[in-house]
Simulated assay, not measured.
Amino acid sequence: MKLVECPRDAMQGLGHFVPTDLKIRYLNALLRVGFDTLDFGSFVSPKAIPQLRDTADVLAGLDLSATKTKLLAIVANVRGAEQAAEFDTIPYIGFPLSVSETFQQRNTNKSIVQAFEEVSQIQNLCVRTGKQLVVYLSMGFGNPYGDPYSPELVSAFTDQLRAMEIQLIAPSDTIGSSTPESIETLFKHLLANFPSIEFGAHLHALPAEANAKVRAAVRAGVRRIDGALRGFGGCPMAADNLTGNLPTESIIETLIAENVDLQLDMAAFQVAMALSAEVFV
């Protein structure tokens, strides 16, 4: 099982700016835990997400000398991808492609058609520079805007991405609208129909819902799950009331109960948990 820790997602909607040195200390603590991937920052407009305006400075302060964790940077356009691609230490570049037209406009200021064009350009950039593109299918379990949604629509998006030779796709809950049933249904369908693609689950949930959603993803065959310590996060572009990420501690608890060997340094995890209290005050 691959666990993806998402402090970038957790911090982006905070009302206060987390000092750069504190971000660095927190991320370095997370790098010692043994997560597969760390969603550490984002190359986006500082006007859009002021919290992440120091991503390049944060990256410079990370100690990657003794970690197996791979870095993931989120971008919203080709320009951001070009910035991320300049850094040899970033193997993953993530792009949010929405199955909701309304959310695509709100999140990246472009239509779905335009977003697909950018995905194509970013994929070409990733191939040239030895990166891997991770496409997050935002509103992958429904949307609050009345836009069309169905598992078949998610499948159609996936088919277009497969044609671009994109191999890592993460349907994303965004607003916490998924249920265990819808999670299991969607991922079973995707995994059966697209065996060459690695699928991740990027889910949001209220605290009481987290364990059931993790179990549903595992039952469906998902082997890559995103979370954030203490369940902070939520997309400020999606709604005023943010539904947090799956708490990493709940994911770990659930997976251990399912007899999944996570190979994490739990002492380092407890250090990171303690430090998270300073970040998310």
Rank of each mutant, 00 (worst) to 15 (best):
Q160V: 02
A216G: 00
E101K: 02
N245I: 01
I225C: 03
Y26C: 07
F232S: 02
M1C: 11
V78I: 11
Q167M: 11
N107Q: 12
Y26S: 06
K188Y: 03
N193E: 12
E82M: 12
L153W: 06
P50Q: 08
R224F: 08
M237W: 10
S98I: 00
L264Q: 12
F35K: 13
I183H: 00
N107I: 04
R224V: 09
A268W: 11
L27A: 04
S172K: 10
S138N: 09
L190C: 02
F157R: 01
L97M: 02
V75H: 01
A56L: 15
P46K: 14
C126M: 11
Y145F: 14
N109P: 13
G176K: 08
E165R: 00
P180T: 00
S150D: 06
K23W: 14
I252V: 15
S100F: 01
E184M: 10
V222S: 03
G142C: 03
L137R: 04
H204T: 07
D159T: 05
N77L: 09
A115V: 06
F187H: 10
M273W: 15
T185K: 14
L62Q: 04
L31C: 08
N211F: 08
A85K: 08
L22K: 15
P91L: 04
T129Q: 14
Q123A: 12
N211I: 09
A257I: 05
E117V: 00
T158N: 00
Q12H: 05
R230S: 06
E198S: 09
I175S: 13
L242M: 10
K213A: 03
M11Y: 03
L275F: 11
H202V: 04
Q160R: 10
E82D: 05
P207T: 12
R79D: 12
L30C: 12
N77P: 01
A216V: 02
L153I: 14
T158S: 02
I122T: 13
L275H: 10
T174P: 02
L161E: 00
G140K: 05
A76Y: 11
L30A: 07
S276I: 09
N211P: 09
V99T: 08
V279L: 01
Q114C: 07
L72E: 15
N245A: 02
S250W: 10
L3G: 07
S100W: 02
E86R: 15
L262Q: 06
Q51L: 10
G231R: 03
G234K: 06
N193C: 08
P46N: 11
E101T: 03
T179W: 01
K2R: 13
P144L: 05
L31R: 06
A228T: 04
V260R: 09
G94A: 15
